[in-house]
Design a protein around this nucleic acid. Structure first.
Lengths: 231, 231
DNA sequence: GACGGTTGGTGATGGTGATCACTCAGCCGG
DNA sequence: CCGGCTGAGTGATCACCATCACCAACCGTC
C-alpha cells in the first residue's frame, strides 16, 4: 500500500513536471514542503501578502473572491497539477483570491524566496511558472466574457454544465457528470442566487435537458443544452 | 522638434525597461518593429492565433472581448509601457481579447519566435514578461470581483470613477478627470447599457456627487462617491 | 447653411432575477 | 427517537435595468 501511494505520487510528479530536466525536479522537490490538508483548510486568503506558491498534488481546491457585501464568487476549482498563487508571488501583489480545500488534499508549498531562486537557477522553472500564469490569465479572461456577456442566468448555467462535460473525455462520451457542488456553490460560480439555481435546474429537467440520479447529472443530448448558449 | 521626439521616446524606453542591462535593451530594440497607428487600428483580434506581443510606446489601446450576441466588454485601456498579448504568446493559446487603438499611437511589435529567443537569452526579459502577465492577471481578477459582485449599476459606475481618480496623483488631489470615453464605452466597461450610464450620470449630478465641465469630470468629495461602493 | 453621423438625454414598458418567507428531505449526534 | 442542521424546492413580491422609441446637440463634410 505504501508503494502504491509512492507510485501514484510519482505519476503526479511526472505529469506536473513533464519535460523537466531531473536536476530541476530535484531542486523543486527539495524546496517544496508537502502537507496533507483536511476539507475546508484555507491555504491563503484574499488580500494577504504573498508568502509562496502552492502546488496541488491531490484533491481539489476552491479559488474564490469575496465582495464587500459578503457575497462570494468562485473563480475556479483547482486540480492536481495546478499552481496557486504564482501571479501574486511574481508580481509581489497580494493574493487575489482565497484558496480553500474542498476535500482532503495533498499540497506542496514553495516559499517566495525559494521560488525566485529556482527561477533564476533553472530556466525551465521560470518558463513553467510563466506558462502557468499565462494559461490561467487566458482562461480567466474567457470566464469573464462568459459570465458578463450573458445576462440570462440560464445561459450561464448551461455554459457551466457544458464546461463540465468537456472537462473529461468520458463525460463527453457518456453525458454524465458527478456533481460535487451544492446549489449555493453553483450560484457562486455563475453569479446568481441559490434559489435561481434551484429553479433553473427544475426548468431544465422539465425541458428534458438534464436528468438527475442522486449526485450524477445526465445530459441526454448536449446539443439542446448548447443551443441555450448561442441564443 | 525631431530631437524633442527622440528625447521623449528615449524617456519612454527608460521607463518601460527600467533596470534592464543595456545588452538586453539593445536586443529587444533590435527585434522590435515600431509602427505608428491611426485611431481605430486593430492590433489583434480575439480568437486569433498569437503572432507576437505588442508594446505600447505612445497612445492608448482598448482591450475588449466580444460575446456571442455581439455585445462588448472592455477589459481595460492599455497605456504606454503596457504589454499586450504576452499571455497568449507564452501559453500558445489564441488571443483572449481584441486590441484596438483609441488614438494615434506608436506601438512596437515583437514576433513570437523572437520573444521566446529573447527570454531564453536574457533572464531579465523572461522575468519582465512574467511580471507583466502576473500583474495583469492580478488586476483582472480584481476587475471581475468588482464587476460581478456588485449588481447595482450605480455601484459599478462609482467604482469606475474612483478608479479614474486613483489612477494619477493629480486626479486624486484635484478631484478632476478628463473623460476620454463615450457613455457607450463606459457602459461596455461596467457591463450596462448606454442609457443606464446616461441616467446614472444624471442621478449623480443631481446628488451633487459629480459635476461636468465639457470633457472634465469634477468630483467634489470623493468620500460621498465611495460610500456608494460599500453600501 | 443644410446634411448625415455620432453622442447624449429621457420617457414608457416589461422581464428577469434577488429577496423574503416558508416547507420539506436527509443526515448526524445525542 | 427526537432535535438540529444543512441543502433543496417553491411561491409572492418588487426593484432594477434592458429595451424600444424618440428627440436634442454637436461636428464634421459637402
Amino acid at each position: 500500500m505504501a508503494t502504491q501511494t509512492i507510485g501514484r505520487l510519482q505519476k503526479e510528479v511526472e505529469k506536473t513536471f513533464a519535460g523537466f530536466p531531473p536536476a530541476a525536479i530535484e531542486a523543486i522537490e527539495q524546496s517544496a514542503l508537502t502537507t496533507s490538508y483536511p476539507t475546508g483548510a484555507v491555504l491563503f486568503a484574499e488580500a494577504q501578502a504573498p508568502k509562496g506558491i502552492f502546488i496541488v498534488r491531490r484533491g481539489r481546491v476552491k479559488l474564490s473572491v469575496c465582495g464587500s457585501d459578503g457575497r462570494t464568487l468562485i473563480l475556479r476549482m483547482a486540480e492536481p497539477g495546478d499552481l496557486l498563487g504564482a501571479a501574486s508571488v511574481i508580481s509581489g501583489r497580494e493574493y487575489e483570491a482565497t484558496a480553500e480545500t474542498q476535500e482532503p488534499s495533498e499540497i506542496s508549498f514553495i516559499r517566495q524566496s525559494d521560488l525566485l531562486r529556482l527561477m533564476r537557477q533553472h530556466g525551465e522553472v521560470a518558463l513553467w511558472i510563466t506558462q502557468h500564469v499565462s494559461a490561467d490569465y487566458n482562461s480567466t479572461c474567457r470566464e469573464i466574457r462568459d459570465l458578463i456577456l450573458s445576462d440570462s442566468a440560464s445561459e450561464k448555467l448551461a455554459r457551466l454544465i457544458v464546461g463540465w462535460l468537456d472537462h473529461s473525455a468520458d463525460s463527453r462520451q457518456s453525458g454524465q457528470v458527478k456533481m460535487a457542488l451544492t446549489h449555493e456553490e453553483i450560484g457562486q460560480m455563475i453569479g446568481t442566487s441559490r434559489e435561481t439555481v434551484s429553479r433553473l435546474f427544475a426548468g431544465f429537467k422539465k425541458q428534458r435537458l438534464i436528468q438527475q440520479n442522486g449526485a450524477t447529472l445526465v445530459v441526454p443530448n448536449r446539443m439542446a443544452l448548447q443551443s441555450l448558449i448561442t441564443a
